[in-house]
């Protein structure tokens, strides 16, 4: 390639980027998709949910909109909203961000990860039975308060994230769900969900669901520990994991109707 050709190519690229943001949807980079995903979490997931399927007939995760839209139309809706509907304008989203969002949504629709289709009823049976999930988790008032309440888990976790939590429970533990263990001066070992700690004391919800408070100076040992949440990578089939994810994905207490 001679220098003229190089200059023309560069000019073409510059023109595409600077004059036609819509082309991002077709020529997106990994950074564009990450930017779109970030914008989705910041501006969209609060109403549409982590999988984009909380609003009526709209399923953003599968590109099911109220009607077929072009990239330009979707970007316009993101920025300007839809008049006389709950979809608000989002003035903080720049045009470039809007097209990143479009690219991200399009990529979701094109995704075929070969995931198994789960069965909600089988998942619930597993949750309440062999999985012993209720020993630590609560759903709509049933179960234990030791672990995270799952009544609204589908509002904050996508199916992909739920699957990861089941297979690798220690991979991402929210600060409010960390575990802590102490040994008291009389030898008692106590572990549970950490609620608060400071230089002198520690407060936790122990495995008996009792609120406990300790003076660190009275303890033989204390420190963070791993939650008792077992990995389902062993002992459960891929189909069972998919069933559990399908059930957990239905838990949307408090979601807008």
């Amino acid at each position: 390639m001679n220098s003229l050709q190089t200059c023309l190519s560069l000019l073409v690229v510059l023109l595409v980027v600077t004059t036609s943001p819509s082309s991002l949807a077709q020529h997106e980079t990994g950074a564009d998709l990450l930017g779109g995903e970030r914008a989705f979490r910041d501006y969209c997931a609060n109403c549409h949910g982590p999988d984009g399927d909380l609003i009526g007939q709209v399923d953003l995760g599968h590109n099911n909109f109220r009607q077929p839209y072009s990239d330009e139309e979707i970007a316009g809706i993101i920025m300007n909203g839809i008049p006389n509907t709950p979809m608000p304008p989002t003035p903080r989203v720049t045009e470039e961000q809007a097209y990143m969002l479009v690219a991200y949504l399009r990529s979701l629709g094109e995704r075929d990860d070969g995931a198994l289709s789960g069965n909600v009823a089988r998942g619930q049976t597993l949750y309440e039975g062999r999985g012993k999930c209720m020993d630590c988790h609560m759903i709509n008032g049933r179960g234990s308060v030791l672990g995270p309440d799952l009544s609204s888990i589908a509002l904050v976790r996508s199916a992909k994230e739920l699957e990861q939590s089941l297979l690798e429970p220690d991979s991402e533990v929210q600060p409010g769900n960390r575990f802590y263990s102490v040994q008291t001066s009389n030898g008692e070992m106590v572990s549970g969900r950490l609620l608060n700690h400071d230089a002198f004391t520690v407060q936790m919800l122990d495995s008996n669901e009792t609120l406990r408070s300790f003076e660190k100076s009275q303890l033989i040992s204390f420190g963070f520990s791993n939650p008792d949440m077992p990995s389902l990578a062993t002992g459960y089939t891929q189909q069972e994991i998919a069933d559990l994810v399908a059930y957990l994905s239905t838990l949307r207490r408090g979601a807008a109707q």
């Binding site: 609620l195 400071d198 004391t201 919800l205 003076e215």
Partner: peptide, 10 residues
């Protein structure tokens, strides 16, 4: 919810 002995927050 507080520890009634220390005032620390649960």
């Amino acid at each position: 919810a507080l520890d009634a002995g220390t005032g620390r927050i649960f």
